[in-house]
Design a binder for these strands. Structure first.
Lengths: 164, 164
DNA sequence: CGAATAATGATATATTGTAACCTTCGCCGA
DNA sequence: TCGGCGAAGGTTACAATATATCATTATTCG
């Protein structure tokens, strides 16, 4: 498993750091990840990923369709966006925020986690946490119950410190 | 906080038992809970709760609208159902399963938990776990991040042992 | 090049969720 | 008793999210 940071333990929690990736860098990482998965990095996909990555909060497929349409000067239908978002989710380039019917770019495409989203009811911004201990516990509980092919989703709705 | 079971510790996990509530019993408990919250227990609400409780898997508002319409021999519009489901959710008579856009009756209306749903991709049945340690950890993580008014949702998609 | 495959476009439709306004009915005080 | 108020539900319209199908264009690869 590739791992682009340092790992250490604080207060019983396994944590690790990610490099913060911005624009160019992130695009390249996304491209590399998609291609490694045997998929093409097309113009459409690049634009959609970029729009998603620029967006400050989870974006619905329709939001993205609008933004992409504007950027390309030509209407892009939501179903095209859905197709690509689905691909992004399965290849870990993006994640779906179930409680918001929306998507966020994964800023560390190569790095695989169950993650936790904190979504502010007020401003809509989603904060992303990784806590592998916690998600391991959730997985374990599901496994004990006899489930397989687990895909956990842990989201917390609430009010962020900015809006409080 | 009312608590209708016994509490004990196994393997570091705080667990407790619920009485299993079936038909009549559950209806009465739901009615009591709603009235204690200062809300009316109407025919419509009773029927919707009953339909939801009978349903073996999470039911969409539209599913419920159909079932209720059939039972009452008269069309009930989805928006009426939504209103009542929202009320049920806020009063803890039912829960929304975000990853399925659907609702389940709470079989212990008086008892308040963050809970974990395991939803089978195959058969659609949702298994309900309570694990207060786990949900406490999730709440804590969100709190540390500065969030307030927390409403955690923990769901695991996968395949249940029956369908495996 | 040319066939096969992958990606996207276009269109239609299904599903899920809200908004606005109206009617009914029970309750409560004058 | 009457009148009015508020809660619940009805009706209609519409918005937002998601999928299905088939046609067209682009890429890959022999």
């Amino acid at each position: 498993m590739p791992f682009d940071g340092k790992a250490f333990i604080i207060g019983g929690m396994a944590l690790h750091h990610h490099h913060e990736r911005g624009g160019e860098d992130l695009l390249k990482a996304a491209k590399a990840t998609l291609q490694k998965a045997g998929e093409q990095w097309t113009d459409m996909r690049a634009v959609i990923f970029d729009v998603l990555a620029e967006h400050s909060k989870p974006a619905s497929a329709y939001d993205i369709a609008d933004l992409v349409s504007r950027r390309r000067g030509k209407r892009v239908a939501p179903n095209s966006v859905y197709r690509i978002l689905d691909l992004f989710v399965t290849t870990n380039l993006a994640r779906r925020v179930e409680s918001a019917n929306a998507y966020v770019a994964n800023s560390h495409p190569g790095c695989l986690h169950d993650c936790i989203f904190l979504i502010c009811d007020e401003c809509g911004i989603a904060t992303h946490l990784d806590n592998d201990d916690l998600s391991a516990s959730v997985r374990e509980a599901a496994q004990v119950a006899g489930f397989v092919n687990l895909r956990p989703m842990i989201e917390v709705r609430g009010k962020c410190s900015n809006c409080d």
